[in-house]
Design a protein around this nucleic acid. Structure first.
Lengths: 191, 191
DNA sequence: GACTTCCTACCTAACGCTCGCTAGGGCTTT
DNA sequence: AAAGCCCTAGCGAGCGTTAGGTAGGAAGTC
């Protein structure tokens, strides 16, 4: 048996949960049921394992969206679909989301560049085209980021906003968030 | 001399930078120029120091906004002011912002409740009133969160979006972000 | 087929170091 | 003298990492 992939899979989960410094090699090994030396057989050190785990987590995510951009639908429909797909994806794949959050918090410039140019490049370019079409008068870069913000941050704030006034259980449902964000973006506050 | 406040001040800075597990008591003591035992004279353990530091960082932030809500200006003006003040505040007080991010990532339910009911309660209630007035047809809770999302996430994404297509240096300026977010919220995409 | 050799994938055990934390003692102020 | 504030020195545990070894299969030689 080759334990490289099982190690990466478990590492993603635990790094997302505890952060880089919060997870020890011994804990990881114990959780998988192997020895520490085995991890070091496959990865030169902890830092390399972390970076490989991050890339591994990102490796298969890209194609989820590609089908969307090829559809022959209107810009409004595409935005709506994008928001729905992203929301559902982030809700389902929480480890991935938390890993991204931690990566951005650490903000290592080199790794940021890598992320931007491998995982997010294509999706972001499509989002820019969409932004230009939907909000022609606005700065497309800022608009695209705003779209991402609305989706991503609604979910990130969940642990906190559960305790803020006006919260209801249905505010956690992907379809409710999707509908709100889409409406706000397409029709503005009064729509 | 009493070293309690200097310890808290430095702890905020370093916890924000490295996270709870990433900062050791020895590092903190060395950074301040005191011994570890001195920290333990003022705080029972690391966890307590962390929690006191978080609360200390939050303690004086509330009143920045109170003046804003008392002004006799229109809802549109208030939203614009809120966005500007928040953006400038988060840009200036980066440690505070990073501490919040880490707190939300860790998502300890008890500490989330504490945060929601002490630091953010009042501000959020005012934001709810504003949301109800500006977007009467929409769910006020979700709208209020969306306003926060647009401001906060634009800044959080900075390390990453620097490397995404269409980025310009002026996209980092508080006034540019303020104007974009305000326009998008008040006038919708086409405005 | 039996043999040696080599390689890969895993292990146990331990090195040197840093961790959170504390006992006990010495100044300074009251 | 008591109390408050800070120190040096050190405990036991856990850290990242490595040296050295074993089991088993593939490949080459007789």
């Amino acid at each position: 048996m080759n334990l490289k992939e099982p190690i990466l899979t478990k590492a993603i989960l635990l790094f997302a949960e505890k952060g880089f410094a919060g997870l020890s090699m011994r804990q990881l090994a114990k959780e998988i049921g192997i020895s520490v030396a085995t991890i070091y057989h496959h990865f030169p050190d902890k830092q390399s394992l972390y970076q490989e785990a991050v890339l591994f987590a990102f490796s298969d995510k890209e194609q989820i969206f590609t089908e969307l951009w090829d559809r022959p639908s209107s810009a409004e429909q595409k935005l709506s679909d994008f928001i729905r797909i992203t929301t559902e994806f982030l809700v389902q794949d929480r480890d991935f989301h938390r890993l991204i959050q931690r990566e951005i918090l650490d903000a290592n410039p080199e790794r940021m560049r890598l992320l931007a140019q491998t995982v997010f490049k294509k999706q972001f370019e499509f989002l820019l085209l969409l932004s230009a079409e939907l909000a022609p008068g606005r700065d497309t870069h800022l608009t695209a980021i705003s779209i991402v913000s609305l989706v991503k941050h609604q979910l990130e704030m969940l642990p906190l906003r559960r305790h803020l006034f006006g919260w209801k259980p249905e505010h956690e449902a992907p379809e409710v968030i999707t509908e709100h964000v889409t409406g706000l973006l397409l029709m503005g506050p009064k729509g």
